[in-house]
Each structure stands twice: as structure tokens, then as C-alpha cells.
């Protein structure tokens, strides 16, 4: 069912591209400027995460033991099973967002809203999962000010959670804007940007998941 959407013979990529490139050159030019700006924004956001990931890797490598000791208590590892589950929720939301945009491109409004709502729900589900994860980690004695493990974990996942939260709000606003008719079949840069942002948030989580749960 899921894959049928993109392969449906609505229009090829060329047709979609032609729709906004040829209809309105002013829009095409401003769109390409805004798109480049948005991609640069995502790249510089990578550096923000990159700096903290560097901090985490540095602290972890230079620590005598990992997980570190706090007093006589050795901190527990993070719970991989639940994190894998929660990751899948977030990755799934990435796929649903992709479907939402594809449906918009192919002028299928109703399916767009359905997939968008699915994305928002999955995003909120991920945030709830993170809240659950945090309580579990806190119960294990890993606290923000208590150890470098807690410091890097809560700062990085907190920053990421904040990005997800912003993303959820962003997608909600996009949905409302789409309802108000701001976007058309050829002018929908906001939706593209929202999708890119959401994919970006997913991919940051791939890195964080690897660093905290797999390494």
C-alpha cells in the first residue's frame, strides 16, 4: 500500500519539476535561493550537533571507564531495546512525511493531510518515548549535572528532542497553512523545507542512536 503512492502514474519527476520551473520564473529563482539557504541552515545545524558529539566522544575516550563511576556506583548502560523501538517510531515518521510530500507533489491533497497527521502523531510518540527514556535513565542514576555521561546524553538528546518538538510545531503550522491555501501544486517550498527539516532530524537521531546505544 505504502509504496504504491510513489509509483502511481500521476506524473514523473520531470513533470513535477517542470511545473514549478516553467510556470513562474520569479518563483523558480526565489525558490532556489531559499532552498540553498535552508540547506545551509541544516548544514550549520549539523555543526551544532557535531560540536557536542565531539565533546561526547572526547569525554568518553578520555574517561578511564565507560560508563563512568559516580562515587562507588558504576552508571548503567542505556536501554538499547527501547531506544531501537523509539528510533523506529522516528524513522517511520520520516517515511510518512516523505509520502505526505509526494502526495502533495502529485496533487493528492487528502492523502497529504493523512500522512502529515500520521507524521505529527509519530513525532509526538517519539517525544513521549524520549520522556519515558529520560525517566528510565534518571532512575538509573545518570543525571545531567552528575556525570559526563549524563551531561552529554541529556544535552544531546535534549537538543535533538527540542528539534523534534520544533519540527512538530513546524509541521502543524505547515498543515494549517496548506489548509488556508497558501501552497499550490507548483508553489510549495514551505512543505519541501519542512520535509527536509524532518528528514534532517531523523538523520541526527541515527547518529545519536549509534553513539549512545550501539557504540
Amino acid at each position: 500500500m505504502a509504496t504504491a503512492v510513489a509509483t502511481a502514474p500521476l506524473a514523473g519527476h520531470e513533470a513535477v519539476a517542470a511545473r514549478y520551473l516553467e510556470v513562474d520564473p520569479v518563483y523558480a529563482e526565489t525558490r532556489s535561493i531559499r532552498l540553498l539557504g535552508f540547506v545551509f541552515f541544516l548544514l550549520s545545524d549539523c555543526v551544532l550537533f557535531g560540536a557536542f558529539i565531539f565533546a561526547y566522544v572526547y569525554l568518553r575516550i578520555s574517561a578511564p571507564t565507560w560508563p563512568p563511576f559516580v562515587g562507588n556506583h558504576r552508571l548503567p548502560w542505556f536501554d538499547t531495546a527501547f531506544a531501537a523501538l523509539n528510533s523506529i517510531v522516528l524513522f517511520g515518521s520520516g517515511v510518512t512525511m516523505h509520502f505526505a510530500l509526494e502526495n502533495w507533489k502529485h496533487l493528492n491533497r487528502q492523502k497529504f493531510y493523512r500522512w502529515l497527521i500520521a507524521t505529527i502523531i509519530l513525532g509526538l510518540g517519539f517525544l513521549l518515548g524520549q520522556a519515558h527514556e529520560w525517566t528510565g535513565v534518571l532512575r538509573g542514576g545518570v543525571t545531567w549535572p552528575g556525570s559526563t555521561m549524563g551531561a552529554s546524553f541529556f544535552t544531546l538528546t535534549g537538543m535533538h528532542g527540542f528539534h523534534v518538538f520544533v519540527g512538530v510545531c513546524y509541521l502543524t503550522v505547515l498543515g494549517l497553512q496548506a489548509r488556508r491555501g497558501i501552497y499550490t501544486g507548483s508553489k510549495y517550498f514551505g512543505l519541501t523545507a519542512g520535509t527536509l527539516y524532518w528528514h534532517f532530524v531523523d538523520v541526527i537521531w541515527v547518529v545519536l542512536f549509534t553513539l549512545f546505544y550501539v557504540w
Binding site: 545551509f40 548544514l43 550549520s44 545545524d45 555543526v47 551544532l48 557535531g50 560540536a51 557536542f52 565533546a55 569525554l59 574517561a63 563512568p68 545531567w144 549535572p145 552528575g146 556525570s147 559526563t148 555521561m149 551531561a151 552529554s152 544535552t155
Partner: peptide
């Protein structure tokens, strides 16, 4: 565009250590 974000991150971490006592740079806590 790229380097300045790293500065902001460093200062963000230092700010967290100032305000919330988060031990990125405190040798006593690793």
C-alpha cells in the same frame, strides 16, 4: 557559517556549566 556554530556550541556548553553545573569541563566529575 560553519565555524561560528562551533563557537556557539562551546559557549552553550560553558553556559550550561555556569548555570546548571553540567560537568563538561569539570575535571572532578570526569
Amino acid at each position: 557559517m560553519f565555524a561560528t556554530v562551533a563557537l556557539s556550541s562551546a559557549l552553550f556548553a560553558l553556559f550550561l556549566e555556569h548555570v546548571f553545573n553540567v560537568p563538561f569541563f569539570d575535571a572532578n566529575r570526569g
